[in-house]
């Protein structure tokens, strides 16, 4: 059984989802790559930000 940490699961999810978003939402390879990186950063960045927000709310 594969048991990743929550953060590793976030990274894997962001990687695969960003790849599909990049390919399907843009037309040229360069723009696909840039949009994929942008989506990846947003996925991971928002997960970190919301994690800290929930941590501070829970205190």
């Amino acid at each position: 059984m594969f048991r990743p940490s929550h953060f590793l699961a976030v990274l894997l999810f962001a990687l695969f989802a960003s790849t599909v978003f990049g390919i399907t939402q843009r037309e040229t390879p360069q723009r696909m790559f840039r949009y994929g990186i942008y989506c990846f950063a947003l996925f991971v960045g928002s997960a970190i930000v919301f994690s800290w927000v929930m941590f501070l709310i829970a205190r």
Binding site: M1, F2, R3, P4, L12, F13, L15, F16, A17, T19, V20, I23, T24
Partner: peptide
């Protein structure tokens, strides 16, 4: 494009099953 999409989607599905 097809290969990247296939790898991403199949890996995501397989990892989901691997996580039970």
């Amino acid at each position: 494009r097809g290969a990247l999409l296939a790898v991403s989607i199949v890996c995501m599905f397989a990892l989901g099953l691997a996580m039970h």
